[in-house]
């Protein structure tokens, strides 16, 4: 009796908290339902709506034409190369960043944040200036005697990858840096004390511990670069059609919403695969 009496008010408080919580959550969730979830469902519908009812024509065109398979491959290749180069630079750089102290660290973090905050269009435009045949990179190479005459760099795949790595690199460094700063350096020292050679200590201790940062960075950079639009448009253009440019063309020029929607769904599926895969991998890391 007394027991139940003592519990009743507590139960009421939880109930009140819960209904208040729902009232606080409702605006965001309703907004996303109306302005995010519904439009996506509609997009899926449009991609399946032919002139006379349900049709898979748009997907057939996307997955059954050699040209569009190349387009899909171009998007994946851009994302893959960007991710690999970004990881190769970011992983060691994150360790240096985590070791830095005081002024040096502030300076390095500033140098990381400024490009991250800077407009993508500004950075991509800067690369078009840097890589022009009368541009600075060419003049330096000629000046150093590395090449005889200026070479064409802009509108090549190299220009595209350089620009893309440049723009997405901070998204790889930051998650890895966040994990490395949490790293207990005594662990790898312990491994060394116990006689593990540095390579083994790295592979068995450091690498597994920094894996969550790598997974987060790879997922972020891959999903950003696979759908990049501004960078390919400015740095390579028509020579390298991607899913993103196909979507834009279908809507802005060709007025073929069904096909554009199908290409959009394809891009969405790629993004979802990356997110699901990385969440899986991260979950497995956590439960170990």
């Amino acid at each position: 009796m007394t027991h139940a009496a003592a519990q009743a008010p507590a139960g009421k408080i939880v109930d009140r908290d819960r209904s208040a919580a729902l009232a606080f959550l409702a605006p965001s969730l309703l907004f996303l339902l109306v302005a995010f979830v519904t439009p996506l469902i509609l997009l899926l519908g449009v991609s399946l709506a032919g002139p006379s009812g349900l049709s898979l024509d748009a997907y057939g065109k996307l997955l059954g034409t050699g040209y569009y398979l190349t387009v899909i491959w171009n998007s994946l290749r851009l994302a893959l190369l960007t991710t690999i180069f970004a990881l190769a630079i970011a992983y060691p750089a994150a360790f240096a960043l985590a070791r830095a102290r005081g002024m040096v660290r502030t300076a390095l973090l500033t140098c990381l944040f400024l490009p991250l905050a800077a407009s993508v269009i500004v950075k991509a435009f800067a690369w078009t200036i840097l890589l022009r045949s009368d541009g600075i990179v060419n003049r330096i190479l000629v000046g150093l005697g590395l090449i005889e005459a200026p070479i064409r760099m802009i509108f090549t795949e190299t220009a595209l990858i350089v620009g893309s790595v440049n723009i997405f690199l901070p998204f790889m460094i930051l998650p890895i840096y966040a994990v490395v700063t949490q790293l207990d350096r005594r662990l790898s020292e312990a491994a060394a004390t116990l006689g593990a050679p540095p390579i083994a200590a790295f592979l068995k201790v450091t690498l597994p511990l920094t894996l969550p940062g790598i997974i987060a960075g790879v997922a972020l950079v891959f999903s950003l670069s696979v759908s990049a639009y501004v960078v390919p448009t400015l740095l390579i253009g028509e020579r390298y059609p991607t899913l993103a440019s196909t979507i834009a063309k279908a809507y802005l020029l060709a007025r073929d919403p069904q096909f554009g929607a199908a290409a959009g769904v394809a891009l969405l599926v790629i993004a979802l695969i990356v997110v699901t895969l990385s969440a899986r991998l991260a979950g497995r890391e956590n439960s170990r």
Binding site: I89, Y91, P92, A93, R99, L114, A126, L169
Partner: peptide, 21 residues
């Protein structure tokens, strides 16, 4: 040393478009 070279290289690489513009 390699880690520091990568970090410095990354900083130069990241800042170069901003300086050029």
């Amino acid at each position: 040393t390699l880690a520091w070279l990568c970090a410095i290289g990354a900083v130069v690489f990241l800042l170069s478009p901003l300086l050029v513009i």
